[in-house]
Write a protein that binds this DNA or RNA. Structure first.
Lengths: 206, 206, 206, 206
DNA sequence: GATGAATGAGCGTTCATTCAT
DNA sequence: TATGAATGAACGCTCATTCAT
């Protein structure tokens, strides 16, 4: 028996975390490929190679895996964002939040940028992956927060937050579909767009 | 067999178009109420009062009705949009497109603004109704078109279109959830946001 | 086309009633063999040879077929019993009720006397078939009714009804297991037992 | 390893019997609360706090625990009954057997009188608890035995035993549902009913 | 012997789709 | 063509049972 027994873990625990991860990974993929609604628990377990019943040793439902995934994403992104909220002016905050968001997406995208079943009427569903949704919600909170604390323009704050998020999200999505993925350029664009609109971008007019 | 069959379209043809319409109407309602994913063919035919099999004489699947609905929406909105493309400068075009879009949405929204299954992890799915999706695509085409013909700022046109659309869509969605529905205010906001960004909206800064 | 079309029925209707009957028959058998609790919807449909989904075109659940079966049994036995309630004294009533009950059982028993899975701890479950249960309830009502109307001995009527039923049921069960089935003898025994007890039966004592 | 292992049964043996008892107790409760059919092995082990697999070190199936429970009940009741068989005449035997049976039931009933799932088509299933079933079987044996040894009336002994048991069982069941539980009154009734029938009970006739 | 995760059959049910009428 | 019952795959989920630890 090894004397480092204290740091080792039983094989059982090992396979347990492996399985849990396998399910999470499979779920991430499946949600990404099929969308939350379409995805089924069976799709997920099928992909893990585990038995049907095993899924329920880890999660009680599709909703629950989804939540787990979302928590995970949020947990990892939240501190990044939180660090930004306090310092600097609004413009800076926006820029840094966008940059953080885009980089986070770029890091993670391999998983969730997966193809969609082509022919389907998928209608522009963004951030379908739970992590994305969670990250998205974080960004949104941050922006609304900033706006409400007066660090942003005094306009219809709900519309503003919605618009900012929308731009970040869409541009982020497009960014991920290009090769190479250029987060800096995308962030530049998104920030300009958010802060100054199209007119801030243009050299030539009609 | 009635002898007046000769003076009009055959009864057959009549009921044929009636049925087709009934299915489309039912589908619109059902998609609006349940969402595309959740809606089932059964839900649709149930609402028509027709027999299950009859559905398949008109459409081969849920996807197909969806597409038909989308075509319909697009067909009705396209001319509106087309009228705008030629005249005026880009700013005007954007404003008018947005206004047209918002008004179209407001007119139609009764159908598709219907409740969503509340507790669900719904994640920002916009334009769930086929007409909306189609209208959306039209707007997008128009913007990209304008941009590419030089009637807009010379920047990354894909990002630009995406961003414009994103703002229009999100703000439009939010608009529909308020009472009263104020398309003018929403359009003002969206246009300002698109053209000048947050800084164009603000009086006070940090 | 036959001119007696008015009395014929479409082939569809025909198979519909056939299927409904097939399901009822299968259900009766299955309940008889497995018991209500153990029986599954799938057991029932499996026996019909129909597809799984077909069951649900006829009944919404196991409970519902059960109820249908019970209704059927009760409907057929109730008039027999009702005819007895008014006339005669209590002894006569008891005798005739028992006779009616036993004969009814004997007529129907082929279905529900079916074997039970031998090794199971089945614990003396009588009348497991819905028809039986229904018939039983009828008998019970009749007896309680008679007792309460004073046509019976003034004792604890609940105990009395329970005891009468118990004897009828048990003796009836045993009767069905013998060959040939002798309803007269069984009825004689049961009536004597109910009216006079063991001492009424005996010639010799210890 | 403790050196006091020698002075008592091994710890192993101790926990072994403890576990066995825990399972039996849990099973008794569960059967009482849920009924034999509805109860699952999982229900039983859940209640013991033991691991799922442990169950199978003691019993191979639900049926087996049931049998064990029944044996237990029978084992405890058998001597009581046996004491009665030899002495006295048949009437006395019947009375004493019934009294013993009713008192045994009343003593134990806390466990197995537990609620049944109310709305269910439960159909008069008696003696659902294994002990009850076993005790019941004992009584039945005793009666048949007495009858066959000539200590009872010379009639159809199978019918007689069945009828006696039936009365005892039903009246016993009803007795347990009343408050206060009056074993004496119930026994009086049952004995009169068994020995003299309804006519033995009655003051007034039709 | 105790553990408890894995297994996979099976359950009730819904659904898209077919096809005889 | 319309009908609507039949079909059977698939779904979410539970369960008895096994077996590596």
């Amino acid at each position: 028996m090894p004397d480092d027994a204290s740091i080792s873990v039983g094989k059982r625990e090992q396979t347990k975390v492996q399985n849990r991860l396998a399910i999470l990974d499979a779920a991430r993929e499946v949600f990404g490929e099929l969308g939350y609604e379409t995805a089924t628990v069976r799709d997920i377990i099928r992909r893990t190679g585990l038995a049907a019943g095993t899924f329920y040793n880890y999660y009680r439902s599709k909703e629950e895996v989804f939540a787990a995934l979302a928590d995970d994403g949020a947990r990892r992104f939240a501190p990044i964002l939180k660090a930004l909220r306090s310092k600097g002016n609004f413009d800076t905050f926006v820029r840094e939040a966008i940059v953080a968001y885009f980089e986070f997406m770029a890091d993670e995208h391999i998983t969730w940028a997966a193809r969609r079943p082509a022919g389907e009427p998928h209608i522009h569903v963004q951030g379908e992956t739970p992590e994305m949704a969670a990250v998205f919600a974080e960004v949104k909170d941050a922006i609304e927060d900033a706006i409400q604390r007066g660090h942003g323009p005094a306009s219809d704050s709900e519309y503003m937050a919605a618009a900012c998020i929308a731009v970040a999200r869409e541009v982020g999505d497009k960014m991920l579909m290009r090769r190479p993925i250029d987060t800096a350029a995308a962030a530049d664009f998104a920030v300009d767009m958010i802060l100054n609109g199209l007119n801030g971008l243009r050299g030539a007019e009609v």
